[in-house]
Simulated scan of single mutants.
Amino acid sequence: MIRLAVCLWLAMASFALALDPSEMLDDPVLEAQARELDHAMRCVVCQSESVASSNAQWAVDTRRVIREQVAAGQTNDQIMDFFVERYGEFVLMAPRTSGSNWLLWAAGPLMFLLAAGVGIGYVRGRSRAVQPATSTLNAEEAKRLREILKE
C-alpha cells in the first residue's frame, strides 16, 4: 500500500516538473491560455502525453513557442492551426471533427447501431422460428419405457 502511494506521488510530481517556472508568462490570463493549449497539444516524441506533462525537448520547445504566440496576441485556433500545419492533426489531443475525421468520430456509434440491429434481428428471428413438435409416446413405447425403468 505504501509503495503504491509513493509511486502515485512520484507520478504526480513528474507532471509538476514538466513546466519550468522560467517558461511561465507574467500575466496570469495569458498563462492560463497557454496552459490550456499545452493540454490540448500532443507531444510528438512521447505520443501519449500532452505537451504540458512531457519533459521531452520537443515539448519544452513547443511550450516556449506557444507562450511566444500567446504573448504576441494569437488566438487558440491560430496557434493550433500553426502546429497542425507543421505536424498534422496528430499533434492535437482531440482531433477535429471536420474533413475526413468525421468518419472516425462516427465509426463508434455506427458500429453500435449495426450491432444493435443485428442483435434485434437475431432475437426476432429466434422468436419466429418453428418450434419442434413435442412428441408423445404411443402405448407400445410407454410400455417399453416402464420396462427399462424397472430394470
Results as ranks from 00 to 15, higher is better:
2 I>Q: 06
3 R>Q: 08
4 L>R: 11
5 A>T: 08
7 C>Q: 15
7 C>R: 15
8 L>C: 14
8 L>V: 13
10 L>D: 13
10 L>V: 13
14 S>M: 08
14 S>D: 13
15 F>E: 11
18 A>M: 01
19 L>M: 06
21 P>A: 09
27 D>S: 11
29 V>T: 13
30 L>R: 11
30 L>T: 02
32 A>R: 10
33 Q>C: 02
33 Q>F: 02
37 L>N: 06
38 D>L: 04
38 D>R: 08
39 H>T: 08
40 A>D: 13
41 M>K: 00
41 M>T: 11
47 Q>P: 03
47 Q>D: 12
49 E>I: 05
49 E>P: 01
50 S>I: 02
51 V>K: 09
52 A>K: 15
53 S>C: 01
55 N>H: 09
59 A>I: 01
59 A>S: 15
60 V>P: 03
62 T>D: 00
62 T>F: 04
66 I>W: 04
68 E>D: 13
69 Q>I: 00
69 Q>E: 09
70 V>G: 00
71 A>Y: 13
73 G>W: 13
73 G>Y: 12
74 Q>W: 12
75 T>Q: 14
75 T>S: 15
76 N>L: 05
80 M>E: 11
80 M>S: 11
81 D>M: 10
84 V>Y: 05
89 E>W: 02
91 V>H: 08
91 V>Q: 05
92 L>E: 03
93 M>V: 09
96 R>A: 08
96 R>C: 01
97 T>H: 10
97 T>W: 10
99 G>M: 02
100 S>W: 04
102 W>M: 06
106 A>E: 01
109 P>Y: 00
112 F>N: 02
116 A>R: 01
116 A>E: 02
117 G>K: 00
120 I>H: 05
121 G>K: 10
125 G>A: 09
127 S>C: 10
127 S>W: 14
128 R>L: 15
131 Q>L: 07
133 A>G: 09
134 T>L: 13
135 S>H: 06
135 S>L: 12
136 T>M: 09
137 L>I: 00
137 L>V: 03
141 E>R: 12
141 E>M: 09
143 K>C: 02
145 L>S: 05
145 L>G: 04
146 R>D: 13
150 K>N: 05
